[in-house]
Design a protein around this nucleic acid. Structure first.
Length: 266
DNA sequence: AACGGAACCTGAAAGC
DNA sequence: TGCTTTCAGGTTCCGT
């Protein structure tokens, strides 16, 4: 269940595994994640392609190939992993690219991810619609404040808007609000300039700390059985707030869980 | 335009 | 034990 940090780690891994290499074998079964529908366009794009660059914006990956462009979104359960060429396909394997010594596999149990074949220079609509990315562009509080001022919904729900905070998801939103000491139910429009500044710094800090924790060849998402929870408050309802010790609350906003400290988040 | 809610999927854990 | 419910870090679409 990847957000910006997990997708960034994936981009770094794909760069190491594939950049400068030629894809010499491709396996893509027909699933709903493939666009355009049917594996033909994707196989045609990838077979024999040289991987020139791997980029990330928000939760999207973009592989620039000698033949065109591959976009990848990991949805809730997608991950790219490296195997040996002789290793058998594994459970939920939805794509396989062999290049040099590497056999890179895309695994995705719930099929919420996307693999999109594109040609030409124009980015796909989903990529074009993304707002500023905290790592690629940096977030600008001065630019953000007037946008937030027009939004009546809660700041927590607003943080999930990819047109405003590309790459922020439910965990980073939860963590950033705790770091910034902001109550998740506050209307986005109610944040002062000072608070928007604190929020932006908190988003950057949380993303960077998560990146440090998760850097490595294979990420274990926190919802997987037995995976550690590296976060301060996410999924820690009932535990003491790391700052003031009062029990962390769990509420639901827009159908998504938020964990926060009712005492120190104002 | 903006918002809330359902839909799209699978699998693990918790509840009965 | 086994069946049912709940929940999960994603986006999109539809109705109001």
């Amino acid at each position: 269940m990847p957000e910006l940090p997990e997708v960034e780690v994936t981009a770094r891994n794909l760069r190491r595994w594939l950049r400068g290499r030629t894809v010499d074998a491709v396996e893509i079964p027909a699933t709903r994640i493939v666009r355009p529908a049917g594996p033909r366009a994707l196989v045609e794009l990838l077979d024999g392609a040289v991987v020139r660059a791997v980029e990330r914006r928000g939760k999207w990956l973009r592989l620039r190939l000698s033949t065109g462009t591959l976009y990848s979104h990991l949805g809730m359960t997608g991950k790219w992993v490296k195997r040996r060429r002789q290793d058998p396909s594994e459970r939920h394997e939805r794509a396989r690219l062999d290049a040099g010594p590497s056999s890179v596999r895309y695994l995705d149990a719930r099929l919420f991810g996307r693999l999109v074949a594109a040609h030409g220079e124009a980015p796909i609509a989903e990529w074009a619609a993304l707002g500023p990315d905290p790592l690629v562009d940096g977030l600008d509080p001065a630019q953000l404040r007037p946008s937030l001022a027009r939004i009546r919904r809660s700041i927590k729900e607003t943080l999930l808007d990819q047109r405003l905070f590309a790459g922020v998801g439910n965990i980073q939103a939860t963590e950033a609000l705790w770091r910034a000491r902001l109550n998740p139910e506050r209307p986005a429009s109610s944040l002062s300039a000072r608070e928007v500044g604190a929020l932006v710094r908190a988003i950057d800090a949380s993303i960077n700390e998560t990146l440090q924790e998760e850097e490595g060849p294979e990420i274990r998402y926190v919802e997987e059985p037995g995976a550690p929870n590296p976060f301060r408050v996410y999924a820690r309802q009932g535990e003491p707030c790391p700052r003031d010790g009062s029990p962390l609350q769990r509420i639901v906003q827009g159908g998504r869980a938020t964990v926060f400290c009712a005492r120190c988040q104002r």
